[in-house]
Design a protein around this nucleic acid. Structure first.
Length: 608
RNA sequence: GGGUUGGUAGUUCAGUUGGUUAGAAUGCUGCCCUGUCACGGCAGAGGUCGCGGGUUCGAGUCCCGUCCAGCCCGCCA
């Protein structure tokens, strides 16, 4: 061994012991003939003291940042202690040292508050990983993983690996494909998730499966999306939705306890998809704060079970509202005193192309009980008051109203709500609130193909009460403009998402396990019987051999870690992440390949 | 595919209305320093202002194009 101790463990109790340490030179502080060196390893920092007897040797063998150093010496008490580090009471009086390796000057400082920008840190990720800040994140990731494995193991789940080289299926996200040399002209796909394999494992009788597993999706990236990412992938047999919800509430509670030392004992709220969309305009609402949507007007077929209140805005001859499909208000607490400049900025915010609203209507609910709005010309004070009441506004609030096409407007209202929540400091990183969103629609309408697509994935079963609707109706859409009136539009999925602070951290469903229903599903998605056999024949075949009722869930591991670490970006929780364009900046991948490789694969490039 | 912000010293950034020799901090190098821990002091080196084109007497600065990076929309069953 190169060392007797690590750089994070020596204390007053070790004083006078002879020790050997090895690590990296963090800093060198020279005072004439004595020199202090901070030696760093994974565990911490220990101060080394080179006294005058080593001065000459040091002059001949100068130390630089990030040199790899081995020192032998005696632990001694410091004359002036440093309360900021764990080993701050002691230092090593160095007797001898060996430079194990030199280092050129790193392009950025290896410190908690580094001077390095993102691009540089990614290029030299191996140096960035030496920093505490990143180390802490990877440690948290490891803790989440351990907690997960412990919980699932204790609950009889079995970790089973599934293949990475599988078959491409055009449903869902774009696949990463891998050419097969031995089967020229044919391609593997990397799994978007081990979905079909875990279902086959259920058929095989492994009734509780899990895997912390890499998944791959060839889609555009975001701060919280990587082309390869990790899921906590789980599946159970002989369960209903309620069983899954309880099992995985347990998992999340356990992770909170183990990783954050938080006893999350409160009941985890449940909300239907329709309520989430109606109340928050969003299928993954942040329920830590109010500002609920007040639906003044909307196309009735969108929320068939909900009631709007158009009488509050109708008949005023205000064209913007009259001509809009949807009008939604939110009451922002305590912002009635916003200046013209501030309201103008909000207007500009909703007019950005990403939001795409034409404008924003304000109603200020003054403290004295009066109302002042940007539509005073059209609405009397009584009308404004009625709207304020409907929007749940109190004196001092600022009501914001957006109007336009249903989906866009609802999303804008939701974005505005989140933006104001963030602006007003209502979304604290250390405040956690979990939520189940349930009863998603099973199908979504795809306009370009005039057909249904699975909202979750094609293996999700309908709610038991909707199975007969699915079986007894023709999925064909004859009248495209009235697709919402098709019976399939109202079929609910036996699916669930877990939401944490406005982030989807996991989702799953009870699966279809009967061959006939699965075939009906594939047919509903526009797949011919030949296609079904070609793409999913193995699954349909397996369903003929006694498939048990089953269901499961998958959690986004990277995202969960990022949220628990208080970060928006998942990159700092991945040791070697990719950038926005899917590039690994450190190894510079992807890259071209040799001509010989193309020949072996019998592939020719035809770049446009 | 679209929007948006940025690209200036090794690094992080400033750079006014287009005008003399492009600055600061930090890092780096050298010298001084026996108790620092963000050590301190003195001196020094370090620049294709992303790239290409244009406007102009003159461009880091204005215009067009392009590349790269960050964030967002679309997309992500």
């Amino acid at each position: 061994m190169f060392r007797s101790h690590t750089c994070g463990e020596l204390k007053m109790a070790d004083v006078n012991n002879d020790v050997t340490l090895a690590g990296w030179v963090q800093t060198v502080r020279k005072f004439g003939s004595i020199t202090f060196v901070d030696l760093r390893d994974r565990y911490g920092i220990t101060q080394l003291l080179f006294n005058e007897s080593l001065n000459e040797v040091l002059d001949k063998n100068p130390l630089g940042r990030e040199f790899v150093l081995q020192v032998t010496g005696k632990v001694s008490e410091r004359s002036s202690k440093n309360a900021n580090i764990a080993t701050g009471d002691i230092e090593i009086a160095v007797a001898s040292f060996t430079i194990l390796n030199k280092s050129i000057t790193p392009p950025f400082t290896i410190q908690d508050d580094t001077d390095g920008g993102d691009e540089l840190r990614m290029k030299y990720r191996f140096l960035d990983l030496r920093r505490n800040a990143v180390k802490k994140n990877l440690a948290l990731r490891y803790a989440v993983g351990r907690s997960t494995r412990n919980y699932l193991h204790e609950n009889n789940f079995m970790d089973i690996e599934t293949p990475f080289l599988i078959k491409s299926t055009p449903e869902g996200a774009r696949d990463f494909v891998v050419p097969s040399r031995m089967n020229a002209g044919q391609f593997y796909a990397l799994p978007q998730s081990p979905q079909t394999f875990k279902q086959l494992l259920m058929v095989s009788g492994y009734d509780r499966y899990y895997q912390i597993v890499k998944c791959f999706r060839d889609e555009d990236l975001r701060a919280d999306r990587q082309p390869e990412f990790t899921q906590i992938d789980c599946e159970m047999s002989f369960v209903e939705q309620e069983d899954i919800l309880q099992m995985f509430e347990g998992l999340v509670r356990r992770i909170f306890k183990d990783v954050k030392n938080i006893e999350y004992t409160e009941t985890i709220e449940r909300m239907s998809w329709m309520d989430a969309m109606w109340t928050y305009g969003n299928d993954k609402p942040d329920i830590r704060f109010g500002m609920n949507l007040c639906n003044l007007k909307f196309p009735s077929h969108t929320f068939s079970e909900q009631q709007d209140i158009p009488e509050l805005i109708d008949g005023a001859d205000f064209k913007v509202f009259d001509e809009a499909e949807t009008v939604v208000a939110i009451a922002v607490p305590g912002c009635a005193n916003y200046s013209r400049k501030q309201t103008d900025e909000l207007t500009e915010w909703v007019k950005r192309p990403q939001i795409g609203m034409k404008g924003l209507v304000f109603i200020k609910c003054n403290e004295d009980g009066t109302f002042k709005s940007s539509v005073d010309k059209f609405y009397t004070e009584d009308k404004l008051k009625a709207i304020a009441t409907a929007a749940n506004a109190t004196a001092g609030d600022l009501i914001l109203i957006v109007a336009g096409a249903e989906e866009k407007t609802r999303k804008a209202a939701s974005d505005l709500r989140m933006y104001m929540g963030t602006t007003l400091g209502l979304r604290k990183a250390d405040d956690y609130k979990l939520l189940w969103v349930l009863d998603f629609p099973l199908f979504e309408y795809a306009e370009e193909d005039n057909r249904w697509v699975a909202r979750h994935h094609p293996f999700t079963s309908p709610k038991p009460s909707d199975i007969h609707t699915m079986i007894n109706n023709d999925p064909k859409i004859t009248n495209a403009t009235e697709y919402l009136k098709h019976p399939y539009a109202n079929i609910k999925a036996n699916a669930y998402d877990m939401v944490l602070n406005g982030n989807e951290i996991g989702g799953g469903s009870i699966r279809i396990f009967q061959k006939e229903l699965q075939q009906k599903m594939f047919a509903a998605l526009g797949m011919s019987e030949e296609e079904q056999q070609h793409k999913f024949g193995f699954l349909l075949g397996a369903f003929e051999y006694g498939a048990p009722p089953h269901g499961g869930i998958a959690f986004g591991f990277d995202r969960l870690c990022a949220i628990l670490g208080g970060s928006e970006s998942i990159r700092d929780f991945i040791a070697f992440p990719k950038n926005n364009s899917g590039r690994d900046m450190m190894i510079d991948a992807p890259s071209t390949i040799d001509e010989k490789q193309f020949e072996e694969l019998q592939i020719k490039l035809d770049l446009k």
